[in-house]
């Protein structure tokens, strides 16, 4: 089997993770191992002493070119629970210094002998670019790039589904909302398909669906009631309010009327369907409060699983990097 270019970049020769840039192209056993490893870390969060020494002596740099306090905090917490030293850098990109300044920033950081960069960037493919420029020896974890990928968010959603629904083969999963601009949705689709889910549905208006969306291996619905029919899992996406300014949508209220998840719509799904959302939620725009806070909602559980998933991915990527370093020393 030939690996896709992104898979080649992410895996060591023996197939271990060394960067985590996108779920696209990663093999099923690896995704299952991420879920299994994360499952073991969920327990760590419940212990009195919440630390494990897997990243002791390692330096993790949170490299955020785009603000995101929530995501950065969960990565920081995950790194600290793995006993790593953590450095947070918020770097605002200016229009005049793009490109070169990124490369210069990387060169400076490389000189500090960091072991791992957690990267958030507004441009699709930026972590990919950084991985190509910085390797060997620094693991790159994508914390969200443009509208391309947000693999740790997608995998925490898989962990959530796995813990509450078990195997993926028989599940019907609907992803609802602004698919076009969503880096999460793309990786969710790749993860679900790789893990064996055969019925993946994208629901939204044509203005918020990407070109040739069906090519991702999904069924596209513009009618939410039809799309939710008998599903086991509903993943709601956050709607950025600036979408109303560029004619993607007329108004938040009309969006809620057509694509908001309320109790009536939820009733179309299976009675034991679960409701997820990457947060932060817009009550009354994507989702009715009664649903968000209801018994089928797992929105708060997802936050806790997020730390476990990030611990899993960081420890696996660091172990892949260490194996490569040792192999290089032997040669």
């Amino acid at each position: 089997m030939t690996l896709s270019p992104s898979a080649q970049l992410q895996l060591t020769e023996s197939g271990e993770l060394r960067h985590f840039l996108t779920v696209d192209g990663l093999p099923r056993p690896l995704l299952e191992r991420i879920i299994d490893t994360a499952n073991s870390f969920v327990v760590v969060g419940n212990q009195e002493v919440k630390k494990v020494p897997l990243l002791r002596g390692k330096t993790v740099v949170n490299l955020f070119f785009e603000n995101s306090t929530r995501t950065r905090s969960t990565f920081e917490l995950a790194a600290k629970r793995l006993s790593a030293d953590v450095l947070n850098l918020d770097i605002k990109t200016s229009a005049t210094s793009k490109g070169e300044s990124l490369l210069d920033t990387l060169r400076n950081l490389r000189a500090m002998h960091s072991d791992m960069f957690v990267v958030r960037h507004s441009q699709s493919g930026a972590p990919h670019f950084i991985a190509e420029q910085v390797t060997p020896n620094v693991a790159i974890i994508n914390a969200g790039d443009g509208r391309h990928a947000h693999p740790t968010q997608a995998m925490l959603d898989m962990l959530t589904i796995h813990r509450h629904k078990g195997a993926f083969d028989q599940l019907k999963v609907a992803i609802v909302g602004d698919i076009l601009h969503s880096r999460v949705a793309r990786d969710q689709v790749h993860a679900l398909a790789t893990l064996g889910c055969k019925d993946i549905r994208l629901i939204g208006p044509n203005t918020l669906l990407p070109a040739e969306a069906a090519s991702l291996g999904v069924t596209v619905y513009t009618d939410m009631d039809m799309g939710l029919e008998e599903v086991d899992v509903i993943i709601m996406l956050r709607l950025q309010t600036e979408r109303m300014d560029s004619a993607f949508l007329p108004s938040a209220s009309e969006y809620y009327q057509v694509y908001g998840l309320n109790r009536q719509r939820l009733a179309k799904a299976k009675p034991d369907a679960i409701v997820m959302h990457p947060g932060p939620i817009n009550r009354g725009i994507e989702i009715e409060s009664e649903v968000a806070d209801g018994s089928q909602s797992l929105i708060l559980d997802q936050v806790g699983y997020g730390i476990a998933i990030r611990m899993a991915v960081m420890s696996m990527a660091m172990s892949g990097q260490m194996q490569e370093r040792q192999a290089a020393e032997v040669i």
Binding site: S124, R186, P210
Partner: peptide, 15 residues
């Protein structure tokens, strides 16, 4: 080019 690959890579497509 706006198409399946642009969707996958998350790059803005030109239709």
């Amino acid at each position: 080019h706006e198409g399946a690959l642009a969707t996958r890579l998350g790059l803005n497509g030109i239709p």
